[in-house]
Design a protein around this nucleic acid. Structure first.
Lengths: 251, 251
DNA sequence: CGAGAGCTTGAATGAGGTCAAAGTTCGTGG
DNA sequence: CCACGAACTTTGACCTCATTCAAGCTCTCG
């Protein structure tokens, strides 16, 4: 396995100094992403409780703010930015288990250790909740627990799809599946799709090497399946064929 | 891809005729596996409610009782037997996403379709709950919801481990990881470990072919890592080395 | 004891990985 | 605005591990 796929952007030891402060009681009321996050299950009347529990935190690009195997002390809710979640082997091989973005809830784990790491791909803002306070909130608001169960169920479905991809799909099928997953993030499927991650991240997500990802994208370009733009964007030019490929229906 | 890895044990079209009847109010009280299942969160006082909701069901070996993509009408709780959960591609390639056994809860999904199929590996007994009745129970017993969240979180951690395995581990590391997972099912690690699945199932679980699984087990035998018994059992003879291999620490 | 499903082993093949080198992109500072 | 350098990407040549194809072997159960 080449070092390329797993190199760190910088090698400084990373102390997890997460600057932040408890929010004002009215903060969550005016939060723009509340509607799309778990916080939406708490009514306006009670939202001050949540605001007092949340700690606003800023994470710089490339920073690992959840360390795999570290004591699981907090839950996180992403309010802006992009995050990659991953697991690693001792020799550096890495599997990205998912990408998380605005509105995503992180940290579900029964164990007292985080089962995965999380690294900011750009500047990330998030709300941090201690486990103890979160437990308290769950006791008081059963709807919160229900919402988290729904969230976890969705992630489970996504994980099962990814297992099928990693265990049984070819490189071309994997990349096609990945692009279609990304398309769902934009309102219009025919516009440019941003890929806010490096080839290395795509490779570690799809169980491939960066060279195979690159070669496969080049092949898709020559096949007129996609047009590759500058600055980490792609536009899909043959949706039907790409969907057939991703579904494993290709000749 | 060879047909061998994905062949059906029989090709009859499977109508999902699930025989069963509502249980007597006192049934769950004396249920032997209640303690190890989600049912344990309901007190003796209320357990009659659960008994009236559950439908006892028998599934014959090889029968698919959850069809991938079918309307998700029920939840299931396994009371005895072994089940494999899987997803498939149109050309027959198959990924087993997990094995479930006594005490396991099945059917978590937010969507109205099952995201995976489930097939009995031997004679399986299970309790079936309609989604509507289950929803009612969750409304009345928040502890049930909490328990399901814990269950889902655990499965999420297992799924992340499996993604690392499928995306980044070698064949030897995969088989070693699998055997160690199986060992955790028996009380004493030095006794025979039952493998109640075929090579084909192992292959579809590990993202390999049956030939590679077979060759890898043979290699482990010659390396004195395991002793392969008759009738689908294995005994681990070099736990430390196997653990190092599974963790990706091998030379 | 015989048939068939399942398992093992061997030889050849190939998809994706590895190694190597050149080409791009992008942020920085003159 | 452009030149520089570092990080990232692409492409080529070769290699390897797992797959494929092909026999045989071995359980199990009627």
């Amino acid at each position: 396995m080449s070092d390329q796929t797993t190199c760190q952007r910088d090698a400084r030891p990373r102390r997890l100094i997460l600057a932040g402060a408890h929010r004002q009681p009215g903060y969550c009321l005016s939060c723009g992403i509340r509607a799309q996050s778990v916080c939406s299950v708490i009514d306006d009347d009670d939202i001050a409780r949540l605001a007092e529990t949340a700690v606003e935190t800023l994470v710089l690009p490339g920073r690992t703010f959840i360390e795999e195997g570290a004591p699981a002390t907090d839950f996180y809710n992403i309010t802006s930015g992009n995050v990659k979640l991953f697991k690693a082997l001792p020799d550096g091989r890495r599997q990205i288990t998912g990408f998380a973005t605005t509105g995503h809830f992180l940290g579900l784990a029964v164990s007292d250790q985080y089962a995965f790491g999380a690294e900011a791909m750009d500047t990330v803002r998030l709300c941090r909740f201690s486990r103890a306070r979160m437990r308290q909130l769950m006791d008081d608001f059963p709807r919160l627990e229900r919402r988290l169960l729904a969230e976890a169920s969705n992630e489970l479905v996504a994980a099962q799809n990814q297992m099928l991809l990693l265990g049984r799909k070819t490189a071309r099928e994997r990349v096609a599946s990945f692009l279609l997953e990304r398309v769902r993030e934009v309102p219009n499927p025919s516009e440019d799709v941003p890929l806010p991650m490096t080839r290395s991240d795509m490779a570690d997500y799809l169980g491939l090497t960066i060279e195979t990802v690159s070669r496969t994208l080049s092949w898709m370009r020559t096949e007129r399946l996609v047009a590759i733009g500058k600055g980490h964007t792609v536009r899909i030019t043959a949706m039907e064929r790409l969907e057939a490929l991703a579904a494993g229906e290709a000749a």
